[in-house]
Write a protein that binds this DNA or RNA. Structure first.
Length: 784
DNA sequence: GTAGGGTTAG
C-alpha cells in the first residue's frame, strides 16, 4: 500500500499540484501516520512532494497535517498517535487539537485535551473559551474565563475578551469586563471595541455603545456593523439606516455583514426600493452569493410578498444552508402558499438537511393553514420525539398555535399545560385560540389566569387577543376597564390595540366612542378604517360607512379586500343596492382587487335582501369563481325573506350538493318550509339533519349589568333569576302592546296557536332564529 | 495555533 502511495506521488507533476490532490495526499499520509509510520519516515519518503504544499516551502510535520483532519474520528486517531509518540507535550499541538475538536463539534475531547496540558499558554485558554462560546455553552465559557483569571498562569489578552463579552449575562458583568479591558490596556483593539459596543447594545445601553464608538481612534467596518446591529437590537431602525448612510459618506465599504444586517430593516420599514438598491450594491460588489446575504435577500423579498424574486435568489445560491431552506419554506408559508412550503420541505429532506426548530415552526403553520388535522398530530409526535417541545418555547408555542388554528382547542389546552416554560406569547396564543373559535368566556378565563401569574405581564399582543372576546360578549363595562388600563401604557396608540378598542366600542353599540377613538389612533393603514366602517355597517349605518370610505380615499389610504367586505356588508344591511354595486365595481377597477367568494356572497346577499332575487341568481351565473355553499346559502336566505319557494328549492339542491355538513343551511330551509306552512318539509329537514349527525346550536344573547355579563340562549332557563326576568318581560310586552305594538308572527316557525306564538316570540325558546354559531356557556363574569 | 459585527420564528 505504501509502495502504491509512493508511485502515486512520484506520478504527480509538482508544478501543477492543485489543492484537491494536496488535500487527498495529506489525508492518505495521515492514514499511514496513524498506522504507526513515524513522521520522519513519511518525510524521508515523500519529502520533495510536500514542498509543493500550497506553494509554501515548509517542512512537513504533523502540525501541518492536522489541518487535513476533516472528522472528529480522524482527530481522535491522530490524538492517540500523538499521545503514544509523546508529541502531545507541545502546547502548540494540544491547542490545535482543542480547536480541531471544537470546530468538529466534539467539545468533550476538546476539554479532555485542555485538562491534560501541564502548562497552558494564552492561546490554550483563549481556544478553550472560544470553543465553549462557539458551541453555545455560555456558562462553561464564563467559568473557564473565571478559572483563567483566578489561576494567574497567564493574564487574559485582547483575544480573550471578544468571546467572553459575547456570552456575558448582564450589563453589570459587561461593565466589569470593560473595566478589566481598560486596566489591561486593550480598549483600542478594534475586535475588543466591537464586542464592547455589541455588549452595551445587547443590554439596552445604546448611548454607552455610541460613546465608545465615537471615542475610537480607528474604526473598521465591523465597528460600524456593531453599531448598526446594536440599533437594530434596540429597535432604532432609523438610526441603523442613518449609520449605513454615514458609512457610505465616509467611504467605508458595506460588507456582507452590513448588508445582511440592513436588509431586514428595509423590510421592517416597508422600504422596498431601499432593499432593491442594497441588493444592487451587493451584486456590484460581488457580495450577493454570500450565504448570509442571500438568506437575508430571500427573507426581505418574502416580506414584500415578492416570492418570485425570493425563489430566484434561492435557486441561484451555490451553497444553501439550513437557514436558506427555512427562509424559502417560511416565505411560502407566510404568503398563504402552504402547499408549496410543504413541497419545499420534502425537497429539503431529499438534499440531506435535517429539520430544526425553525423548519418545524414554519411547517406547523403550513399544516394549520391547510386545515390538515392528521399531519398536525404527526408533526406533534415528531417534535415530541426530538424533545424540541421541552427545549424550545418557540416550538411549544408554534404547536399550540397550530392546534388553536385548527380549532382543536382541547389539544391546544393540553400542549399549553405541558409546556415546560410559558412566556407571554404562550398565553396570547391560547387566548387568541379561544377567542377566534368563539370561546369568549374561556379566552377571558385564560386572561384572568395569566394576570394572576407573577412573572408574566400583558403586552400589546395580549390586548389584541383578549379584547375581541369582550366585544363578542358585548361586555362594554369590562372592556372599558381594560381601556382604562391600556391608556396608561406607552403603546396605547398602537394601531392594532387601538383598532381592537374601536371594534369593541363599535360592536357594543357605542359608535360615538368608537369614532372619537378612531380619530386618535394612527390611520395610515387600512386596519382601523376596516374596523370603523364595519361597525357602522353592523348597526345599519351604511351611509356613514360609505362616507368613511370616501374619507379614507381622501386620506390616500389604500383599501384592501376586508375594506370592501365591510362596505358590501354595510350596504347590504342598509338596503343600499346601487352603492353596493358601485363598491364592487370600484374594488376591481380602481384597486385591482379580485373578488373572493366572500365578496360574491355579500353581493348575492345585497341583491337578495333587496328582493332582486332574479338579479341575484343572474349574478351567480356570471361569477368567475365556482359558487360554493355560502353563495347558494345567501340566495336561500334571501328566498326565505321574500318567500320565494321555487327558487329556494333550486338553491337548496345546489347548496346540499356543495356542502351537506353545515347545520345552518338545514335550519334555514326548515324555516322556509315553516314560513310557508309546509310542516312536513320542516320535519323532513330536521330528520335529515339528525340522520347526518348534525346538531343545531341554539342562538344566544347577552347583557352586561354592573360589569357582569349574563348569557341567555334558547331553550335554557338555568339563570338563577329566571322567574323575575320573565315576569318583567310579560309586563313590558303588555306595555308595548298598549302603545300599539303588534308582534310579527312570521318569525315563529312552529305549528302552534296565536297566543302560543306570542309567548314564543317574547321568550328565549327553541325554534326562534336558530344559529350555527358556537354556543357560549351561561356562566357569569365578574369585571377584571 | 486563539478574537469582533450578520440571515430564519411562535
Amino acid at each position: 500500500m505504501f509502495a502504491i502511495l509512493c508511485v502515486f506521488i512520484a506520478g504527480l507533476n509538482h508544478d501543477y499540484y492543485n489543492c484537491r490532490s494536496t488535500s487527498c495526499l495529506a489525508r492518505i499520509c495521515l492514514r499511514f501516520w496513524t498506522h504507526c509510520l513515524s513522521i520522519s519516515t513519511l518525510s524521508d519518503y515523500l519529502g520533495p512532494s510536500f514542498h509543493g504544499f500550497e506553494g509554501k516551502k515548509k517542512k512537513v510535520d504533523i502540525e501541518h497535517l492536522l489541518q487535513y483532519c476533516f472528522s472528529a474520528r480522524t482527530v481522535r486517531k491522530v490524538h492517540a498517535r500523538l499521545v503514544v509518540s509523546g508529541t502531545l507535550q507541545s502546547v502548540y499541538v494540544s491547542t490545535r487539537l482543542i480547536n480541531l475538536y471544537a470546530h468538529l463539534g466534539d467539545l468533550c475531547f476538546a476539554r479532555k485535551t485542555f485538562d491534560n496540558i501541564p502548562s497552558r499558554d494564552s492561546y490554550t485558554w483563549n481556544s478553550m473559551i472560544a470553543a465553549y462560546v462557539r458551541t453555545g455553552c455560555s456558562r462553561e465559557a464564563l467559568n473557564c474565563f473565571s478559572e483563567l483569571v483566578s489561576s494567574s498562569q497567564v493574564p487574559p489578552d485582547n483575544y480573550t475578551f471578544p468571546p467572553v463579552l459575547k456570552v456575558c449575562e448582564n450589563q453589570i458583568d459587561g461593565k466589569k469586563l470593560h473595566c478589566l479591558v481598560l486596566k489591561l490596556g486593550f480598549v483600542w483593539d478594534v475586535f475588543v471595541a466591537a464586542s464592547l459596543i455589541h455588549m452595551y447594545s445587547r443590554f439596552g445601553f445604546p448611548a454607552d455603545a455610541r460613546n465608545l464608538f465615537e471615542s475610537m481612534p480607528f474604526r473598521d467596518s465591523p465597528s460600524w456593523n456593531a453599531m448598526i446591529s446594536g440599533y437594530c437590537l434596540n429597535g432604532n431602525l432609523a438610526e441603523a439606516l442613518n449609520f449605513v448612510g454615514k458609512m457610505r459618506l465616509g467611504a467605508i465599504n458595506l460588507d456582507s455583514v452590513t448588508i445582511a444586517s440592513i436588509l431586514p430593516v428595509c423590510a421592517q420599514v416597508d422600504d422596498f426600493l431601499g432593499g432593491v438598491l442594497i441588493h444592487l450594491y451587493a451584486i456590484k460588489h460581488g457580495l450577493e452569493h454570500d450565504v448570509f446575504v442571500s438568506n437575508a435577500l430571500i427573507n426581505m423579498y418574502a416580506k414584500f410578498s415578492r416570492l418570485q424574486l425570493a425563489e430566484n435568489i434561492f435557486d441561484k445560491m451555490f451553497a444553501k444552508d439550513l437557514v436558506s431552506w427555512n427562509s424559502i419554506i417560511s416565505a411560502y408559508e407566510q404568503n398563504d402558499n402552504p402547499v408549496r412550503a410543504i413541497e419545499l420541505f420534502r425537497e429539503m429532506k431529499c438534499h440531506g438537511f435535517q429539520p430544526d426548530v425553525l423548519t418545524l415552526v414554519g411547517l406547523a403553520s403550513s399544516v394549520a393553514q391547510l386545515g390538515d388535522c392528521q399531519n398536525s398530530r404527526l408533526l406533534h409526535g415528531f417534535v415530541l420525539r426530538r424533545t424540541y417541545l421541552m427545549d424550545s418555547i418557540i416550538m411549544g408555542n408554534a404547536v399550540l398555535d397550530m392546534y388553536a388554528k385548527l380549532g382543536l382547542l382541547d389539544c391546544a389546552q393540553k400542549v399549553f399545560e405541558d409546556l415546560s416554560a410559558k412566556d407571554i406569547i404562550s398565553w396570547n396564543t391560547l387566548i387568541t385560540g379561544y377567542s377566534q373559535n368563539g370561546f369568549a368566556s374561556e379566552a377571558i378565563d385564560a386572561f384572568c389566569k395569566m394576570e394572576s401569574c407573577e412573572d408574566t405581564s400583558p403586552n400589546q399582543g395580549t390586548w389584541v387577543s383578549v379584547l375581541p372576546a369582550y366585544s363578542y360578549l358585548g361586555a362594554l363595562q369590562q372592556g372599558m376597564k381594560l381601556h382604562g388600563r391600556i391608556i396608561k401604557m406607552p403603546f396605547h396608540l398602537d394601531t392594532y390595540v387601538g383598532t381592537c378598542l374601536v371594534d369593541m366600542y363599535g360592536k357594543c353599540g357605542r359608535l360615538d366612542a368608537a369614532l372619537s377613538l378612531f380619530y386618535e389612533i394612527p390611520r395610515i393603514s387600512s386596519i382601523p378604517w376596516n374596523a370603523i366602517i364595519s361597525c357602522h355597517g353592523i348597526h345599519g349605518h351604511g351611509r356613514v360607512s360609505l362616507k368613511l370610505f370616501q374619507e379614507m380615499q381622501r386620506e390616500r389610504v389604500d383599501p384592501d379586500h376586508v375594506t370592501f367586505l365591510s362596505l358590501l356588508s354595510a350596504c347590504s344591511h342598509s338596503g343600499l343596492v346601487d352603492e353596493g354595486q358601485w363598491c364592487f365595481h370600484v374594488m376591481q377597477e380602481e384597486y385591482g382587487i379580485r373578488p373572493s367568494l366572500k365578496h360574491y356572497g355579500c353581493m348575492v346577499d345585497l341583491l337578495g335582501r333587496a328582493g332582486l332575487l332574479e338579479k341575484a341568481y343572474e349574478f351567480i351565473k356570471g361569477m368567475t369563481l365556482r359558487p360554493d355553499a355560502s353563495i347558494w346559502g345567501a340566495l336561500l336566505a334571501a328566498c326565505r325573506i321574500h318567500g320565494h319557494i321555487e327558487l329556494a328549492e333550486f338553491a337548496s339542491d345546489k347548496l346540499f350538493a356543495a356542502d351537506s355538513e353545515h347545520v345552518g343551511y338545514y335550519v334555514l330551509l326548515s324555516n322556509i318550509y315553516a314560513n310557508a306552512g309546509k310542516w312536513e318539509g320542516v320535519n323532513e329537514m330536521r330528520s335529515l339533519a339528525s340522520s347526518r349527525g348534525l346538531k343545531k346550536t341554539p342562538g344566544w344573547s347577552s347583557i352586561e349589568v354592573n360589569s357582569k355579563v349574563d348569557v341567555f340562549y334558547t331553550g335554557n332557563k338555568s339563570h338563577p333569576q329566571v322567574d323575575r326576568i320573565y315576569r318583567e318581560l310579560r309586563i313590558r310586552t303588555e306595555e308595548a302592546k298598549s302603545l300599539g305594538y303588534a308582534p310579527d308572527y312570521s318569525f315563529v316557525l312552529q305549528d302552534v296557536e296565536e297566543d302560543e306564538k306570542e309567548h314564543i316570540l317574547s321568550s328565549h325558546r327553541q325554534g326562534v332564529h336558530l344559529q350555527s354559531s358556537t354556543t357560549p356557556d351561561h356562566r357569569s363574569y365578574e369585571g377584571g
